[in-house]
């Protein structure tokens, strides 16, 4: 298990918290929370050690596309970058959901 932390300067505050995913084998859960800070903090707990660079790349790409201002928590149980990207995108969908 490894804990990782990333930070991005962002400018589009989110309005509500959202949660998607399950900490199942090869999967992860993602929580977005609103923040009043001017940056986004990402805290990751992952079961697969040694992938900091891969996470950096996935997050770089995500924030380039969606520069949201949010505190993000991720609990990961060995998901691939593709699955990570999918869950992050699903969380964006959930933000838009009116429910």
């Amino acid at each position: 298990m490894e804990k990782l932390h990333f930070s991005f300067d962002t400018k589009e505050p989110i309005q509500k918290p959202v949660h998607v995913g399950v900490v199942a084998s090869g999967d992860l859960e993602v929580i977005f929370r609103p923040t009043t800070d001017t940056k986004s903090d990402i805290n990751i707990v992952t079961g697969s050690d040694g992938f900091k660079e891969v996470w950096q790349n996935v997050l770089d790409r995500f924030f380039a596309r969606y520069p949201i201002q949010a505190n993000i928590e991720i609990n990961d149980f060995g998901s691939t970058p593709g699955v990570v990207n999918l869950r992050l995108t699903q969380a964006m969908e959930a933000l838009k959901d009116e429910k």
Partner: peptide, 10 residues
């Protein structure tokens, strides 16, 4: 869980 190196769930 974390003290045992296991990823928790929210």
């Amino acid at each position: 869980l974390e003290p045992q190196g296991i990823v928790p769930e929210s």
